[in-house]
């Protein structure tokens, strides 16, 4: 009897605790989140501010909307645990920088994008998958699905699925290949990332 009551109290407390997050944790909330972040990003992409400032403003939006650390950890997979403190820190720095430069090196192409949120469906524990159609002038529309997680209490993007291909899964398989071919050293991956980053910086400077 006592056990029963305790269970009931615990259950009630749980419900009360969960209630506020449960309300915000809806497909509608996720869709609204993607809509607002997408609009903010589009404003930056279409603006005429100087390149460096544009990149900084975009980086701010990304840092706030994407679970950069969580994605980075997922992508490194089992090698995260074997990496040293210094390697982890360097990896996180390179991961974020690559994410940002990959976009800023293509500012020219990303101008004038149009996007519409078309659908939003719960994906169990993982969160909510928000479907958008992105159109570039003169090209066929591309379907991009955003996996939004509420695990941290606020909405954060944890994956991008382009026409059925998950970016974080593709990247994880790629990074693990680089580590494997580098003799199992995380350092080999860091070298490759540094090289890629400097190539992206060159590309960013070259575009008009």
């Amino acid at each position: 009897m006592r056990l029963h009551r305790r269970g009931l109290v615990a259950g009630l407390a749980g419900v009360l605790l969960l209630a506020p997050t449960a309300r915000a944790n809806t497909p509608e909330a996720a869709a609204a989140f993607i809509e607002s972040r997408g609009t903010a990003l589009k404003e930056v992409l279409d603006s005429d501010t100087p390149l460096a400032e544009k990149r900084e403003r975009m980086a701010e939006i990304l840092r706030e909307a994407v679970d950069v650390r969580g994605v980075a950890q997922f992508v490194l997979g089992r090698h995260w645990r074997t990496a040293s403190e210094a390697e982890r820190a360097e990896y996180l720095r390179l991961f974020e920088a690559t994410l940002i430069r990959n976009l800023s090196a293509r500012f020219g192409e990303l101008r004038g994008l149009r996007f519409t949120v078309s659908r939003s469906q719960p994906r169990g524990e993982e969160g909510v998958l928000v479907t958008t159609m992105v159109e570039q002038p003169g090209q066929a529309p591309v379907q991009l699905d955003w996996l939004v997680s509420f695990a941290s209490g606020r909405p954060l993007i944890v994956d991008l699925v382009a026409e059925g291909t998950s970016l974080r899964i593709t990247q994880r398989s790629e990074y693990s290949a680089v580590i494997q071919r580098g003799g199992g050293r995380v350092g080999a991956l860091l070298d490759a990332m540094r090289q890629q980053l400097s190539a992206l910086e060159q590309r960013e400077l070259a575009q008009k």
Partner: peptide
Amino acid sequence: QSLDFYAALRSVYQQRRERDIRNEG
């Protein structure tokens, strides 16, 4: 974008086929 184009394409192929088989696309 890829550090290892071979590995990237392998992953993309595997994911795409899975989606096509399930008719999810």
